[in-house]
């Protein structure tokens, strides 16, 4: 079990906020560190019963090999694609400046 379970620091919460793209307020940093700690403490018990011999279940139904044929389907029109956009220009979605290349 991770040593930090049950205690989540304000710095951790701030880091999680950055990862999740939430511009958290000071108040939220306090509130979430307390609440997350409570919740994590309550749920951390799963680690006790999850012994190595138990396999994980990620899908409730045991399906596999579900494929689609490589056949084109109709697309949205450019107008439909952009209809909900907060900002668009030249048939494209307009976004604020990007600082970092991926």
């Amino acid at each position: 079990m991770p040593e930090t379970a049950g205690a989540i620091t304000r710095e951790q919460v701030a880091h999680l906020g950055r990862l999740a793209r939430l511009s958290l307020t000071e108040d939220e940093l306090d509130r979430y560190s307390a609440q997350l700690a409570d919740i994590v403490a309550a749920v951390a018990r799963v680690t006790e019963v999850a012994t190595p011999d138990v396999p994980a279940t990620s899908h409730p139904m045991p399906l596999q090999n579900v494929f689609r044929d490589d056949v084109p389907r109709p697309c949205l029109s450019q107008e439909q694609a952009l209809a909900g956009a907060p900002d668009a220009e030249d048939g494209r979605f307009r976004v604020p400046r990007i600082l970092d290349e991926e």
């Binding site: 689609r68 056949v71 084109p72 389907r73 109709p74 697309c75 949205l76 029109s77 450019q78 694609a81 952009l82 030249d90 048939g91 494209r92 979605f93």
Partner: peptide
Amino acid sequence: GCPTTFGAEPNTQVCPVCL
């Protein structure tokens, strides 16, 4: 099922899935 043709008009080869 959107086609993959290179050089199409922007945002014309999109659907709810790939958008």
